Simulated assay, not measured.
Amino acid sequence: MNYIKLLNAAFLKFYSDDRLNPSHISLYMALFQEWNSSRFADDFFVSRRDIMQASKIGSKSTYHRCVTDLHSWNYLTYYPSNNPYKGSKIKMSLIETSDEPVTGRYNPKLEQVAEQYRPGNEPITGQYHPILEQVVDSHRPISGQALVSYINNTKQLKHNKTPKGCQAVFDFFIENSFSADEGKKFFEYYETRNWQTSNGKEIRDWRSLATNWMERAAVFNEEKKTNNNALSQIKDNLRTTKSKDYGQPL
């Protein structure tokens, strides 16, 4: 299998999949590297702790949510393991690639990202290096510099700054396995602040902000559940019966 072709195909799919957030992509890249280390085996076993460290995901709930999402969206097949001494099994899905020449379909953005994850970062002889030449368009010109469409870029930035109504926020939270009530809290919180950060700057991408909100909410809910269980246990230990028989000898 061709490492670069598989990675380029993955990033091309990431670009058009609005369901993904940075945690999904970080987790996929960590699993992709494990797949590469196993010489692209049909399936391989992973340790949750190692994958969380490699993907920089600090919450167990975020890890399980992301790997379940990637499974349901056909990026991979996840076989969880209940055995603490045996890791979960992963089967990576083969994203469609093509053996056709890259002429006319070259995407320098994807190649630049793939270059960062290539083991050793050895130079690829004879291939275009995007760092040495500035090309922003999705098609590489035969000669000269590509023209940049600032109109499309501006529209995309405006679309990502603020959501198109509260329903868009509700749908985004539901798609990420959160309730619409949590989405309502997020929308009302930033709506009253005119979609600005605490230092008065405009929000660049509300989806990224919502993702961070959900991750913090997951950690908070998990800690709250743990504290409630501990408090309940303390109350059970302190609870005494009100009916006592003082007539019995000691």
Rank of each mutant, 00 (worst) to 15 (best):
I90K: 10
K91G: 01
M92V: 13
M92T: 07
M92R: 03
S93Y: 08
S93C: 14
T97N: 04
D99C: 00
E100V: 08
P101Y: 00
T103I: 06
G104V: 08
R105V: 09
N107K: 14
N107W: 14
N107E: 01
N107F: 05
L110E: 15
L110S: 14
E111L: 07
E111Q: 07
Q112K: 05
V113I: 03
V113W: 01
V113T: 04
E115R: 08
E115M: 07
Q116H: 05
Q116G: 09
Y117K: 02
G120L: 04
G120W: 13
E122V: 00
P123K: 12
Q127S: 09
Y128T: 00
H129L: 11
H129N: 10
I131H: 10
E133F: 12
E133I: 15
Q134T: 00
V135P: 11
V135A: 01
V135D: 12
V135I: 03
V136C: 12
V136E: 06
D137R: 03
S138L: 09
S138A: 01
R140L: 07
S143I: 06
G144R: 06
Q145A: 14
L147G: 03
L147E: 15
L147Y: 15
V148L: 05
I151A: 06
I151K: 13
N152T: 05
K155W: 15
Q156Y: 15
L157D: 05
K158I: 09
K158F: 14
K158H: 15
H159F: 15
H159C: 13
N160R: 14
K161M: 11
K164N: 13
K164D: 05
G165A: 03
C166T: 15
Q167I: 02
V169M: 01
D171A: 11
F172Q: 06
F173Y: 02
F173A: 12
E175I: 07
N176W: 04
N176I: 01
S177D: 12
S179K: 14
S179T: 12
S179A: 12
A180C: 13
D181T: 04
E182P: 05
E182K: 03
G183S: 02
K184V: 08
F186D: 01
F186T: 12
E188V: 07
Y189K: 11
Y190H: 09
Y190F: 12
N194A: 09
N194W: 04
Q196W: 08
T197P: 04
E202I: 03
E202G: 02
R204N: 08
R204L: 04
R204H: 07
D205T: 08
W206G: 08
W206L: 00
L209Q: 09
A210S: 12
T211A: 05
W213M: 04
W213T: 01
M214S: 12
E215K: 05
A217S: 14
F220W: 15
N221I: 09
E223Y: 15
K224I: 06
K225V: 05
N227L: 07
N228Y: 14
N228F: 01
A230N: 02
A230H: 10
L231Q: 06
